[in-house]
């Protein structure tokens, strides 16, 4: 068993590419905790990974989605996007769907992401294939980024707070990434299929 310690926040693509690289080196994910990733040996490139944002879903929906992916033959792990060791934490998420707007340790707090693994069949690993579904997924990620930016940017300016400024910049980067992806989909002109 090999262990690595990493933190990717909500940089989903970077986390997935890192896991793909580990697989290319012959290491398959078997367990993950807050910062820990534990691997076992596998054939180089035997597995491919996707990291999915599920913080906007209710606990039931997120678990149902995870079970559905397992039924499709994938392995899934819930993963934290936050780095918070508080016990009994409750977070308000006005940007989530009903049922997910009060996230706690018992629901989706510290379970904001899903790492999905499939056996490498040579085809690209994409969980979202239609433009309309991709757009819906980007909008789900854009809402928390906008919320975080609206909260943190004024705090950074008014309180001259560096941490708030860093969060505002990160949120803005995430917001721009989603916006660019949505604009690209719109340019393709097939949002309504």
């Amino acid at each position: 068993m090999e262990k690595r310690y990493r933190y990717f926040w909500t940089l989903l693509g970077i986390q997935a590419r890192w896991l793909d690289k580990m697989s290319d080196r012959g290491l398959r994910l078997v367990r993950t905790e807050k910062l820990l990733y534990e691997f076992e040996p596998c054939a180089p490139g035997e597995y491919r990974y996707c990291v999915e944002f599920v913080a906007h879903l209710s606990r039931d929906k997120a678990e149902d989605y995870g079970r559905f992916l397992e039924d499709c033959g994938y392995r899934v792990w819930f993963k934290n996007a936050n780095l918070d060791w508080n016990v009994g934490k409750v977070e308000v998420r006005p940007w989530a769907e009903p049922g997910g707007r009060l996230a706690s340790n018992a629901t989706t707090y510290n379970r904001e992401l899903l790492i999905v693994e499939k056996k490498n069949d040579g085809k690209p690993f994409q969980l979202h294939s239609s433009n309309e579904d991709k757009a819906r997924y980007y909008r789900a990620q854009r809402r928390p980024a906008l919320f975080l930016f609206v909260i943190m940017a004024p705090l950074a300016v008014v309180l001259r707070s560096w941490p708030a400024g860093i969060f505002a910049v990160l949120a803005l980067a995430m917001l721009l990434r989603c916006q660019l992806a949505l604009a690209k989909l719109k340019r393709q002109g097939s949002l309504t299929e």
Partner: peptide, 23 residues
């Protein structure tokens, strides 16, 4: 079940239409 639907679509369209599990 879900996986069988994905296979059905891929086979019937000869790989032209591939459904992602999330979609």
């Amino acid at each position: 079940h879900g996986y069988a639907v994905m296979q059905f679509v891929e086979e019937r369209t000869a790989g032209r239409l591939i459904l992602g599990a999330g979609t």
